[in-house]
Write a protein that binds this DNA or RNA. Structure first.
Lengths: 249, 249
DNA sequence: CGCCCCATTGAGACGGCTCAACTTGCGTGG
DNA sequence: CCACGCAAGTTGAGCCGTCTCAATGGGGCG
């Protein structure tokens, strides 16, 4: 509950999408380089388009849409997912405020996945051609773009390890700790949180059925490692969760 | 067998690591942008370091090494893998001639994975700081870098789908078709190939045990979808492999 | 030859999936 | 206001695919 209040405060101050600017944004250390100087921040700020909020279930873009922009999440939460030829879906990531998405599709000029808001969310749209031009002029910005993409690749590789080697408990624990760390980075509680996604989305992302997700959360609750009430989660034993992360198969 | 000869010919003409240059290299359309003009290719060529070949089992770099360069494979084959705190390994990719690796570690300034030659291989080392400088001057080069990283991200996401949703046959079929397409791009046979990796590496990459890999290959052989003789593989029924790729769980 | 590594094959165990029943919360409409 | 339907989540029982453990075969090399 506490975290809900905090996060709606946080979004309140970024929701004013007429006046908002990067230099005022409390997320700027996350999506832009910390070391970037104020003049350069303003140059980036000028190309960014702040649109009205997305509602839960709204698509930001879909597979095959022309690639024009990347996006920074300002408030809410976003999931990205693939749909293959047979309609099989794979959730490929969850994105929280301060995180940047949309790097798929630079290669082919059309987006390679679907992107959807899990709750009311707002994003900053960054037209990619203009960002490229600016990156030619601002070396730290070019470097920052490489960094963001590099981190995405590293985290995708960690996910491959999770999917390939861990059992159900390890996968759930890994996701919970990842969310916890990402909330903490924004000075929100590392322990109490409201999950932005359904059991279905968690299971899909982690390669598990919703029944297994549900059973695993119940077991962790019974063992007092976490406490679960619907989407409200409290992490009660980080050490134990860490151990579970390294559990195999 | 035929493919072995072809590929050793291909490496013969790139192995001359004293005179080799990007403009002579028959892989240049793969690792450098096709549209790049000759003068710019020469500027890239000047910063590239061509070192002596790696032998099977040699590491190109290891987790924690200072990040200085990215690498283009000229001949042979390379695997990248993570090792987590408990020593669990996860193979995160195989790289063939013309493919570029090493994008991990831009963010943290130290490499996030281990990289090892599966057979005698040679690589072009591209010092990253100088590449960044050049990218500021050559817009197509900057764009190409973004494209390469974007494609890496997209293929990692496909891998997440494979690991999360497909059964053993689907995973094997997906890997075989991926290798086949990548050989074909270099004008090698799309059907007959020699696998560069052991069953162990295949299994590790695909989240399967070597026993399951072996059994699955044997079954596909018996059903005449492929023919297997150790590491020599012939794809005999691409359509059936395609079907298997979409098989679930 | 004997050793080691890699691969293959078989038998049994087990984790997560499938199917199914039930609960809970929420929005709609009588 | 309650009845109803619907979506999301929980829980149980049984099944199945892959893992584990173990034995065996073959190729390269000292």
């Amino acid at each position: 509950m506490a975290s809900t209040i905090l996060s709606s405060n946080a979004s309140a101050c970024t929701h004013g999408f007429i006046k908002a600017s990067c230099s005022d944004c409390n997320l700027k250390g996350l999506c832009l380089p910390i070391a970037m100087d104020i003049g350069d921040i303003d140059r980036v700020d000028k190309i960014i388009q702040r649109s009205r909020p997305l509602h839960a279930g709204d698509h930001l873009y879909r597979t095959g849409d022309v690639f024009r922009s990347i996006y920074a999440v300002r408030s809410g939460s976003i999931k990205t997912y693939l749909v293959d030829e047979d309609g099989i879906e794979q959730v490929t990531g969850f994105f929280l405020p301060g995180e940047v998405l949309g790097f798929d599709g630079i290669g082919t000029h059309s987006h390679g996945c679907n992107v959807l808001a899990l709750e009311t969310s707002s994003v900053c749209e960054i037209p990619f051609e203009r960002l490229e031009e600016l990156s030619l002029q601002i070396p730290t910005l070019q470097h920052h773009m490489f960094q963001l993409m590099s981190k995405q690749i590293e985290s995708d590789h960690q996910m491959m390890l999770t999917l390939s080697k861990k059992n159900a408990e390890g996968r759930i624990a890994t996701l919970l700790l990842s969310l916890s760390r990402r909330y903490a980075r924004r000075n929100l509680s590392a322990n109490a949180m409201r999950l932005p996604m359904s059991r279905m989305d968690m299971g899909n992302f982690l390669g598990l059925t919703i029944e297994t997700v549900s059973r695993t959360l119940s077991r962790l609750h019974k063992e007092e490692v976490i406490s679960v009430d619907g989407r409200e989660i409290v992490l009660k034993n980080h050490e134990r969760l860490d151990e579970l992360c390294h559990q195999l198969q």
